[in-house]
Design a protein around this nucleic acid. Structure first.
Lengths: 223, 223
DNA sequence: GTCTATATCCTGATAGAC
DNA sequence: GTCTATCAGGATATAGAC
């Protein structure tokens, strides 16, 4: 029972998940039918319900497959940074958060790029269930990063930090969702478009600057 | 034929547009059926096809109604700023772009808030037609703002500016889409959540800082 | 302009043979 | 575990009376 070459054990599940990633990204959840999906995956129509139970359960499985490892990677990166015991620079915290998601845009073959665009798009997804699902998958990681930033920026008011984290998260989300599509980037060299290192550096620098924006704005003048 | 009190001339059209804004925002385009939509609007099922021709044409009308005036406002704001003839500060350019969209979040009654969330969500919308539609409605305004920023920041490399505009646009998009929903803002005072002035100041400060982030990052070290 | 009734098609899900 | 055939319902769109 050992050494059988390719053993297509969960192969059908994987094919379905890959096809779902791609089609959900292209057409959204409601815009993708089980017929399209199973045809693309090269499996039978009934296979999705057999392996996952329902379309909703499939959606959940699509996110779970990638999101759990991605957030584990983020937390591990923070752990590694904090090992030294010395204070963290906020740039490093930002980079630790950004990198695990951006790296996937280079994984065109394995479908990571499809997922990452789907993920970016889903942050603003209206669907009741989906948003809650993602939110709870993210919650512990977000809490962890919030505490890290609080320690790195003790002088920043709590509500200001919350807003700036919100903005940062949004910039990342849009960047993930739009890497392929946006007309603006037309001005950018095509070979740079999928260079994750370049993008993560650009994005990190931008976010760090925003996070450190001066506090004495006209907001305070009003008080 | 004058002075009839309320003349419900295009009233049916308006009711349909309002209902569409709300339901598209809540459930997406594919997730909203004509039956739901006409029921919510209090009009007959056939009315949509009579007044707009098709569901797709309705979607287009929803965006046209708000987007054209909004972008006109943006261009007018730039015109006003440039009237003096002196160089513009990039903060003012950013604010001129951001304000016309954020102000709509205070229009809960007129449906502006619904639209603004729909708009934010639609920037990352997968649907083929919709994205193209929005893109072409925005193109001239974006071009105009790009030139203004180029003049305000002559020292910035062209490709760097394009990326930073991309990030800025993304942050705004996400902010629009998520004003209501995101769990992060739970830490924020509830009465501030719909205060457009506060939000636009916070966002403008954040974006301006990101736009002016130092250029000598590790990107340059690689060269 | 508004409404009812309906045509045509596609959706997610399942029963049951293999 | 995979397939075919099918169910029950919902989708957009339209024809035609009022």
């Amino acid at each position: 029972m050992a050494l059988r070459p390719v053993k297509p054990q969960h192969e059908t599940r994987t094919r379905i998940l890959d096809a779902a990633e791609e089609l959900f990204m292209q057409h959204g959840f409601e815009g993708t039918s089980m017929r399209q999906l199973t045809a693309r995956a090269g499996v039978n129509l009934a296979a999705v319900n057999y392996h996952f139970g329902s379309k909703d359960a499939l959606i959940e499985a699509v996110f779970k497959r990638r999101l759990d490892p991605m957030n584990a990677e983020r937390v591990a990166a923070l752990d590694a940074l904090e090992k030294d015991g010395q204070a963290l620079a906020s740039v490093d915290i930002i980079r630790a958060f950004v990198v695990p998601s951006l790296r996937l845009i280079e994984d065109a073959k394995g479908g990571g790029r499809n997922f990452i665009r789907l993920l970016g798009r889903t942050y603003t997804e209206p669907a009741k269930t989906v948003r809650a699902l993602i939110g709870q998958m993210y919650a512990p990681t977000m809490e962890r990063y919030k505490r890290a930033l609080e320690r790195a920026l003790p002088q920043m008011p709590a509500d200001e930090l919350v807003w700036r984290m919100h903005f940062m998260f949004g910039t990342l989300a849009y960047t993930l969702a739009a890497t392929d599509t946006v007309q603006l980037i037309a001005g950018c060299k095509p070979e740079d478009r999928y260079d994750a290192r370049l993008l993560e550096e650009r994005l990190t620098v931008f976010l760090a600057a925003g996070l450190h924006a001066p506090l004495e704005s006209s907001i305070k003048k009003a008080a």
